[in-house]
Amino acid sequence: MYPQTHVYFAEKVFGRLSEPLALGSVFPDIAQGIVPDRQKSHGCGAEILAYMREQDNDEDLLDFARGVITHGIKPAGLDYYGDEKFLSYERGYCFEKGRVLIDETIKACRLPPTMGWWKTHNIIEMGIELHLSNFNSYGKVLSAAFVNIDLLTRLSQYLGHFYAIEPALLKQRILRFAGFIEISQVTAASLAARYDLQMFAKHHLHIDIPHVAHLIKQAITIVTGDLTDFFTYVLDKVKHNLITLHAID
């Protein structure tokens, strides 16, 4: 899922938001660029929580770890059910919903066919991001977190030790990530423009921005019927994980 969706979901889980919680809820995507694989970036939530408990047991650090757990694939968080597996679908919710847009996404993003389904699930995620932004500006708390230098410095020190990465490099990665995502007022056009930056950075491809913006709007219609049910199902599963880890009452 996209950043503001992760913040929205973290708020649904805990009934509140804080800067560390919001930052934790997007951190696996930040880590993905500097750790060896998806298991390390998206599958270490429980380990990060345990590590933070061994340190100062500081509430900000624990809130960050709680946010990480809501995002990842192990224990199963929002990205597990959105990307990996949901109910009886072949893959996650966003992949399944994206099937009907594969051909159009290949055209709009100028992709080889083998990348079509993968990138189409991003279109669905952006549609969800746009839809949720109508209810609240979840980017505000992210913006505040990204300029909270004291918080970023402390987290970089602890996480640098956890991942065996130089803290300054990790802090730089966090700050750089803020420039690649949309944390202001979300529109289909702004999401498509950011996606163009991401696609060029990853694949040296430029997309048809107006066409992708149109597909993002279509994605909202595709998920409207069962998106609430999806979040309700995942919310129950993630809360159970957090209770098991003694991270929530």
Rank of each mutant, 00 (worst) to 15 (best):
C94V: 10
Y81D: 01
G116M: 06
N57A: 14
E54Q: 15
F64D: 06
K74I: 10
A65Q: 05
D150T: 13
D29M: 08
T114E: 10
G33W: 11
D79C: 01
F135Q: 15
R53N: 11
K40H: 14
I149Q: 11
E96H: 11
L151D: 05
N57L: 09
V35R: 05
I34W: 04
I48M: 12
Y51R: 02
H42M: 07
P36Y: 11
C44P: 00
I30Q: 08
G92L: 09
K85Y: 00
G45W: 01
S143M: 10
D56W: 08
E96L: 05
G45I: 02
L61H: 09
R91D: 07
I48Q: 08
R154I: 10
A76Y: 06
H42D: 03
L62T: 01
I69A: 04
H71S: 06
K40D: 14
E47T: 04
Y80T: 00
P28E: 03
D60W: 03
M52S: 07
S41M: 03
A50E: 15
A108E: 08
F27L: 02
T120W: 11
H131T: 08
R66A: 09
C109K: 12
E90L: 13
L132P: 03
I34G: 01
D58I: 04
C44M: 13
H71W: 02
A31W: 06
Y80G: 00
V35K: 06
S133P: 07
M52R: 07
A65H: 03
A144C: 03
L87K: 15
F135D: 14
N134V: 04
A76Q: 12
V68E: 01
H42L: 06
I149S: 11
R53E: 10
L151Q: 05
G77T: 00
Y81F: 14
E125W: 06
V147A: 09
R53C: 05
A144T: 03
V100N: 10
A144M: 08
C109Y: 09
L87Q: 15
Y93T: 00
